[in-house]
Design a protein around this nucleic acid. Structure first.
Length: 477
RNA sequence: CGGGACAUAGCGCAGUUCGGUUAGCGCGCCUGCCUUGGGAGCAGGAGGCCGCAGGUUCAAAUCCUGCUGUCCCGACCA
């Protein structure tokens, strides 16, 4: 066989993505439309994502709980905007136990309604607040068009649901979790993100304010990678959740919700990978370094023995590694296989190296190879893992900056966006009509209004009305 | 949900136009030998309800109808 048969990015980006996901064994298609099997490679990544985020949630005072998958249909209908937003994508259970159900159950598209119906029972006084709960769960959204990890009918996520005594406290929580997401995206996924507020058109159905993180993928489109909502009193009012204040007054509770999903895995693929397959940031990689001993029958024992000796301390050092000593595959085959699966470092040890007391270390992200003496292997590997993590971020940041354009010329933007994707920093008057026009004319949406945005007087790129700041606009997933 | 393409061995494909022995090829897989520093070589072998369900016919991978799934393009969304 030639090399792997991954469609090059330049030729067909969408097909490249599918090829990488399937061939690197992240996922496989399932028998049901829009569903996928998350394979060990993909699930291992998800477990690392979960583990890291879960610690961050705990550190910020949250606890995990679990609410049921099935939600009475009537619950969804209690919050008008909410039901309107989700109605088209609901999967509904109508029969059970061989009978038609009195009231259909909805497979949760998100859990605000069932959680707030429960919080009603738990909250009486300001002393019961705040409630800071997260749940790891699956959700169902019947999407018209699905894509592995990016949009599937069933997906895994976490959803935080908190209850507070004041709007300010809810807002603080919303922004705090947005910060957690930003930290995770940038420092673990090595994916620079714009952090900002959604427009009314783009916000969550039922939220007062939606905040988000938006990274750029390698095709220069935006991916909504995480959202954090200040729900105000909308759900508390819909479910009549009130509490008694210190002063004895009855008030509706303030809510937030925030989530990231297995879509992040699609983000990792699209942010860093190349035509040879996956590239995974070291901090999230299930295997950080793979050893490929190069041997024949005569020296096999000697060489694998040396590898074991050199890695004796690695478990304690916290380096996640694997020794690929299969004798039914040749080294060259293994090189390609592990590259395809995105392992950050490959370490070769063959007879020639043994003679010279060295190993050869190859970086997945740059393909660079260096010879390193036995005594320096451990430290070099540790350093390289840090370097790769940083380099991936820098590379992605430079890529985003190179493809972000500040413009006041609508025609230029539409023309440019027609030829190639990119982020545009544009003035916008704040009106829905102009936002709709962007979408109609260029399939461009306003991804966010950046937080701590530089204030600058300008004119809306569509209508020319006054604007005080620039927003991020782009085509998106 | 509209438009288009596709579905034959684990993967990639040929065969379908114009129905006709036992459905092929490459890679992979199994056995053995030989090999091992960028997807080695030779020999032998296993593997198929031709996506599913109906129909037409003496005869269907091939023709007809329905369904399901995947991909692409649109409208909708994390």
């Amino acid at each position: 066989m030639a090399k792997q048969n991954i469609t090059p990015r330049a030729e067909d980006y969408a097909q490249w993505y599918i090829d990488v996901v399937l061939q690197s064994k992240l996922a496989d298609y399932a028998p049901v439309k829009g569903c996928m099997v998350i394979r060990p490679n993909g699930y291992g990544l998800w477990e690392n994502i979960q583990k890291t985020l879960d610690e961050m949630f705990k550190e910020t005072g949250h606890e995990n709980a679990y609410f049921p998958l099935l939600i009475p249909e009537s619950f969804l209908k209690k919050e008008a905007e909410h039901v309107e937003g989700f109605a088209p994508e609901l999967a509904v259970m109508t029969h059970a136990g061989g009978k038609k159900l009195e009231e259909p159950y909805v497979l949760r598209p998100t859990s605000e309604t069932i959680i707030w119906s429960t919080y009603k029972k738990w909250i009486q006084s300001y002393r019961d607040l705040p409630i800071l709960i997260n749940q790891w769960a699956n959700v169902f959204r019947w999407e018209m068009r699905t894509r592995l990890f990016l949009r599937t009918t069933e997906f895994l996520w976490q959803e935080g649901h908190t209850a507070h005594a004041t709007f300010e406290e809810a807002e603080e929580e919303t922004l705090k979790m947005l910060g957690v997401y930003r930290n995770f995206a940038e420092n673990f996924m090595a994916m620079p993100v714009y952090v900002g507020k959604k427009t009314n058109k783009e916000k969550f159905a039922g939220a007062v304010t939606t905040y988000c993180i938006e990274p750029m993928m390698q095709d220069k489109k935006a991916l909504q990678a995480g959202t954090s909502h200040n729900l105000g009193q909308n759900f508390a009012k819909a479910f009549d959740v009130t509490f008694q204040t210190k002063e004895g007054k009855l008030e509706h509770v303030f809510a937030t919700s925030w989530g990231v999903s297995t879509r992040l895995i699609g983000g990792i693929v699209m942010a860093h990978s190349d035509d040879n397959g996956l590239v995974i940031p070291p901090k999230l990689s299930v295997i950080q370094a793979v050893w490929i001993p190069i041997f024949n029958k005569d020296n096999q024992e000697k060489i694998t023995g040396k590898v074991k000796e050199l890695t004796q301390t690695w478990k304690n050092e916290g380096i996640k590694f694997k020794i690929d000593d299969r004798d039914n595959y040749k080294p060259g085959w293994k090189f390609n296989e592990w590259e395809l699966q995105g392992v950050p470092l490959r370490i070769e040890l063959g007879p020639k190296d043994l003679e010279q007391n060295q190993v050869v270390i190859a970086r997945r992200d740059t393909n660079e190879k260096v010879a390193v003496s036995f005594e320096n292997v451990t430290q070099t590997v540790k350093n390289l893992l840090v370097t790769i993590q940083n380099d991936l971020f820098t590379k992605a940041l430079n890529f985003r900056n190179d493809n972000t354009f500040v413009t006041d010329d609508y025609k230029f933007m539409l023309k440019k966006s027609d030829e190639d994707n990119g982020f545009y920093k544009i003035h916008w008057c704040g009106n829905r009509a102009c936002e709709d026009n962007l979408q109609e004319m260029g399939k461009i949406t306003i991804r966010c209004i950046p937080l701590n945005n530089e204030q600058e007087n300008g004119k809306c790129i569509v209508c020319g009305e006054a604007s005080k700041e620039r927003v991020i606009a782009a085509k998106s997933y």
